[in-house]
Structures are given as C-alpha cells and as structure tokens.
C-alpha cells in the first residue's frame, strides 16, 4: 500500500508539471491574434475538455503506441493523459486570469515602451497569480482524484494496490475505506494547505494583502 501511495504522488507530480506547461502554452495561444495559433489552441482545448479523461487514457495507452509504433509504459501513458487533459482546463484558467488584468496595465507598460515579452513576463504574468491560484488549486485537487484512473491501465498506484488487497483478503470495507481516507488525507492535509500557502504568498507578493 505504501508503494501505491508513492506511485500516486509520483503520478500527481509528473502530471502537474506537464499540466502547468500545457496550460501556459495553450493559455497564451488562446490570446493570440493570429487565427491559426488561436485555432490550434481552441481545437486542443475543446477536444480534451469535450471527451472523457478515461477515454483519452485508454486511447493513449492502447491505441497510440500501435499507431506510431512505440512502446509506452503504463506509468508514462498515465501521467501524459492526465497532464494533457488537465492542461486543457488549466489553459482556460490562464487565459481568464490574463484577461482579468486591467487593460490599463498593458497601456502603462506600453507607454514605458516595454517589449511584448517584457510586458508579459514582468507586468502581466505576476499579476495573474492571485486570480489564477484559487481555480488552479481546485483543479489540482481534481487532478489528485483523477490519478486513481491510472490504476485502470494497471499502474500500481494506491487504488490499484487496494484492488489487489481486496481480491486477496476480501475485506472491502477496510481496504477501500482506507484508500478513501488516504486520498482524503492527501487532499485535505497536504495538497490544500500547500496551495493555500501559495495563494497567500502570491497575494502578498502582488502587494494586495500586506500587513
């Protein structure tokens, strides 16, 4: 069971990293005035949000390797599917929080003749964090819960191990009950406090909650 927790956390970390990268790239692409870039991002986001995570997981694990002739370990398929899927949701959050930065901040930066890259990096992106983090926190709690799905492509995570125990000892209440409690502890006492701390940190950095 402890190994299972380790795998669940590893899945969580890898897929979070991937999801953040995807969110940033596609979130910024969604704000592009270039039709092609905008179109690609929109299709990606609508596709991954429109179909089910489980289907994407199965497709990436069972179908994709045959199509492009590679072998994909279950662990990789697991966090890739999670990252791609949650990245699509994250991209919409990134887009929304960039749009929530007042237009005047763009104008002020332009009046100081900042380059578009400098403007994004130093003025806009730092200001998105207070808007970004609360919905992103929710998303990450959902992501932690969704990691249970990777057990279905036989990644030996927490839930996979519980199913193995259940088949050996046939004590469903104890086994699945424990699994639920462990997920609860991970979400409520580790992930959520950490995210709350990040939110406070960001708010302070932006200078809205000093003192």
């Amino acid at each position: 069971m402890f190994n299972g927790i380790g795998i669940t956390i590893a899945q969580m970390l890898c897929s979070t990293a991937l999801a953040i990268i995807i969110s940033l790239i596609f979130g910024l692409m969604r704000l592009s005035s270039n039709r092609l870039i905008l179109g690609i991002a929109t299709v990606y986001i609508e596709f991954f949000r429109g179909t089910s995570l489980l289907i994407q997981l199965y497709w990436i694990y069972y179908v994709l390797p045959l199509l492009i002739n590679i072998s994909l370990e279950a662990f990789y398929a697991g966090f890739i599917a999670l990252g791609l899927n949650f990245g699509a949701y994250g991209a919409e959050i990134v887009r929304g929080s960039i749009q929530a930065v007042p237009r005047q901040q763009w104008e002020a930066a332009k009046s100081l003749n900042m380059s578009p890259i400098l403007l994004m990096r130093r003025i806009i992106i730092p200001q998105t964090f207070p808007h970004l983090l609360p919905p992103f926190s929710n998303l990450l709690v959902e992501l932690l819960k969704a990691t249970a799905l990777v057990s279905l492509i036989s990644v030996t995570d927490l839930f996979f191990m519980s199913k193995v125990f259940n088949q050996t000892y046939w004590m469903s209440l104890q086994v699945f009950g424990t699994a639920l409690i462990i997920y609860y502890i991970l979400a409520r006492f580790f992930l959520t406090p950490f995210l709350r701390w990040l939110e406070i940190l960001a708010a302070r950095k932006v200078g809205k909650l000093i003192g």
């Binding site: 007042p102 005047q104 901040q105 104008e107 002020a108 930066a109 100081l112 003749n113 900042m114 380059s115 400098l118 130093r122 003025i123 730092p126 200001q127 950095k205 932006v206 200078g207 809205k208």
Partner: peptide, 19 residues
C-alpha cells in the same frame, strides 16, 4: 496605472533598466 506588484522604486526603474 502603477504596477501593483512592484514597489514605488521598482515601478520607476523597471523600464529604464529593461527598455
């Protein structure tokens, strides 16, 4: 339209340094 996440001094040096 000051930049809310920067101090007064940072507001005044950001563009001179980077632009």
């Amino acid at each position: 339209n000051l930049f809310p996440h920067m101090t007064v001094l940072q507001n005044c040096v950001e563009a001179p340094i980077n632009v």
